[in-house]
Design a protein around this nucleic acid. Structure first.
Lengths: 210, 210
DNA sequence: TAGATTGTTAATCGATTAACAATC
DNA sequence: TAGATTGTTAATCGATTAACAATC
């Protein structure tokens, strides 16, 4: 069906379109042209039209785009109308921050299980979810149709836990550990490497000061 | 001096090179060729050589690259040999996760002040640092030569706080709030938009399942 | 209908890869 | 010296921008 592959450059711009369209929708804007959106988002109108047309014709000549319609189409493209069940491995500050961030839930990302190695934390509740020991992981994943694993653990443990997740059927990993995971081709990994982000900032500070 | 501008595509690969070279160094590897590094990192040898040569000739024909030398050069390029003083605004879970992540400190990023609006949190200590009220922000930034502001606050407050930081001289912002900040040209912003990262993962899951 | 704005093709720009001469 | 591997130029590939015919 889908013949041409969409580049990740395009994909990485979709969430931002989605955010702006959501804001426009919430403020009651009904229609918008690529030029108006271009002015607001500081990307070229040409790129906006090219990006949208990767997925089909959402606009109308002489009119522009209907904000609500386009918003929903992008939600569809991003898979935000589907529910996802997540396990979060590592209930430290970062894990808790993610578990408590309600907006993910609103978009269909349901934190279903939380796991940790620390006996002090196991058994406690985070957002109504009891933290379980790592030994329960495989059974839990199978029983709860988990499709995303979130790794908020130190890099030393990340590869082993990733292997365990993959072995019991998880096919997508949101990885906050500062290590590159080595998974089969059909398993998706999305990395959030905070220290790399900070180093980029550092580079630009350093360059500017010269 | 520096005539040609380095593209952000190159810059965003540097931290990863730095990480792998650090690991090689720690495991006692003395020299490495672009081909060997290519095999390990899964990028082309050609790209590795091109990337490094943006900053000068770090290798030697017939030999390759000295791991420790290259590691230090990249640290220099990234500005990791300079100290940075950070204020962290928002002492929730995410703020605490960042404050407690020791590795930033090791690279010269010193969390010097922590601020919050919540009276329950103000006065408490996070990693030996007393959380201060927002009213102290400007004076603190001036007194402590702060050069980076970290925004771990809700999007509703982010723009206003960013303006305050910029007004008192902060020229770099590490922004975790899900909003695009509008700052003067000479102020650097590095965004970490977690929900956009998760949506990208969602897109790829959704696409794969078709 | 006339005006506006998309969808799409063509042109440009930039980034990646390939090739090889320079040289350690 | 011969072999290896860089530094760098040239070729290719892909992404962005410009232009405009299609059409609402």
């Amino acid at each position: 069906m889908d013949s041409k592959e969409i580049s990740q450059a395009v994909v990485s711009r979709l969430p931002r379109y989605f955010r702006y369209l959501g804001e426009l929708k919430d403020s009651g804007v009904e229609r918008i042209s690529s030029q108006e959106l271009s002015d607001i988002m500081h990307v070229t109108a040409s790129q906006i039209r090219q990006d949208f047309n990767n997925f089909g014709g959402f606009g109308q000549q002489g009119y522009g785009y209907n904000v609500e319609y386009l918003y929903n189409e992008i939600a569809n493209i991003l898979g935000l109308h589907e529910k996802h069940h997540l396990v979060l491995i590592g209930a430290g500050n970062l894990g808790q921050a993610i578990a408590n961030y309600m907006n993910f839930e609103r978009r269909g990302f349901l934190i279903t299980g939380i796991f940790d190695v620390n006996k002090e934390i196991i058994g406690k509740k985070i957002k109504d979810i009891t933290v379980l020991p790592m030994s329960d992981l495989e059974q839990f994943v199978k029983d709860n149709a988990i499709d995303i694993g979130v790794l908020t653990i130190p890099k030393s443990a990340a590869k082993e836990v990733a292997d365990r997740l993959v072995a019991c059927g998880v096919h997508a990993i949101w990885n906050f550990a500062h290590v590159d995971l080595d998974v089969p081709d059909d398993v998706l990994v999305e990395n959030v490497h905070l220290s790399e982000s900070l180093m980029k900032l550092s580079y630009n500070i350093h360059r500017k000061s010269k």
